[in-house]
Design a protein around this nucleic acid. Sequence first.
DNA 1: GCCCAGGGAATCG
DNA 2: CGATTCCATGGG
Length: 217
Amino acid sequence: MAEADRDQLMTIFDRLFTAYGPRHWWPARTPYEMMVGAILTQNTAWTNVEKAIRNFEDQLSPEFVAAVSLEELAGIIKPCGYFNQKARHLKHLTSWFEAYDYDVSLVTRVDEQRLRQELLAVKGVGPETADSILLYALEQPFFVIDAYTRRLLTRLGWEVPVKYDQLQLMMEASLPRDTHLYGEFHALIVEHAKRHCRKSPACLDCPLEDLCRQRLA
DNA sequence: GCCCAGGGAATCG
DNA sequence: CGATTCCATGGG
């Protein structure tokens, strides 16, 4: 059955890639900016994150975030919502990064499973954010699970585990362990969700229409 | 005015 | 453990 899962997943990947093309994720100039974006985008529209990042005005660096006051930081990221919490979370994440001298090449020397545990220990970093950082900033093969992934698999008629780690395990067991594939796949799922099936049941030109067993979720 | 967006922590049973 | 509740802005 794992083989059938793999075939269907690769079919979906091919359909989405053909429909939407390479996504060039994550949209960020540096790995640190990517990490910041991962915190800021939590339960928040990306357009608001762009406004928040723009407010840094070329000052977005770990040194700046470490030095700036909590109040000022909250003011800068205001457009992305939850700014008081997220300001604290950015400080915590930056403290973690500081232990590696703000150097990604030093971070990636550490065992990847240990890195995941370290990230999960940072306040404001849950499984999805940790895996996003691992995948897109640190280029480690962790498949990112989100609400869109769950909805897509549910529509395909899959039995989707409730627990994050269990679903991630299922996906990683069904796919070749490939950082680029994971990154492209997750980005395609998000792109697909933005374009289709957000509202029921009108799914015009949906590249997965014939595969859906459930109309909506 | 209502709904939701690329979640996660704190609290409570 | 699972289930609530809170966090907050901007666009449709």
